[in-house]
């Protein structure tokens, strides 16, 4: 289901774009649509073109990787207020993982080609976008590194 009703307001209210200059928010709204996904429905499939990214308004999404013949592994879950996807910023613009709604999920979908074009034409907008996405990437990289430590795994032999 796709709708464009109230998209400006939704963008201004989403934490990812909070505090952004209204002119930029309006430019982004021109590339945005309102979408919803039922539990189990995929927003993103590995290998597909990264032609959208998503701002989660309600619900939850699992980032998954699959191995042939085995149950998919969930790498991380994203929730209300999170942003989903950055492969749209990195050539050749293909998704690296799957993303599946684990409950009814409402998102603002942003047309990546449209926004890339606007950012190319207005580098200040591009800078604004990157300065919002980089902290998210940094936080997720840091979280992934923490999980590599297997914090709760078996400790060294104790008493």
């Amino acid at each position: 289901m796709v709708s464009v009703e109230g998209i400006d307001r939704m963008i201004s209210e989403h934490p990812f774009f909070s505090g952004m200059e209204p002119g930029y928010q309006a430019m982004i709204a021109g590339c945005a649509s309102n979408q919803s996904f039922e539990a189990g429905q995929y927003l993103i499939r590995e290998g597909d073109n990264a032609d959208h990214f998503y701002l989660i308004r309600h619900g939850a999404v699992a980032i998954e990787v699959h191995t042939q013949g085995q149950t998919s592994v969930t790498l991380e879950t994203l929730h209300e207020g999170d942003v989903l996807g950055w492969s749209w910023l990195v050539p050749p613009y293909h998704w690296l993982f799957d993303a599946r709604a684990i409950q009814l999920t409402r998102v603002i979908a942003i047309d990546a080609a449209c926004l890339r074009e606007k950012a190319e034409a207005d580098h200040s907008l591009g800078y604004e976008l990157y300065s919002r996405i980089m902290p998210v990437m940094s936080e997720r990289l840091s979280a992934a590194r923490l999980r590599l430590l297997d914090l709760y795994g078996s400790p060294r032999k104790g008493q």
Partner: peptide, 15 residues
């Protein structure tokens, strides 16, 4: 920290 797709809760670190 780790789950397969039948887990419908959160996956990620506590902080």
């Amino acid at each position: 920290d780790q789950a397969v797709s039948n887990w419908s809760g959160r996956v990620g670190v506590v902080p």
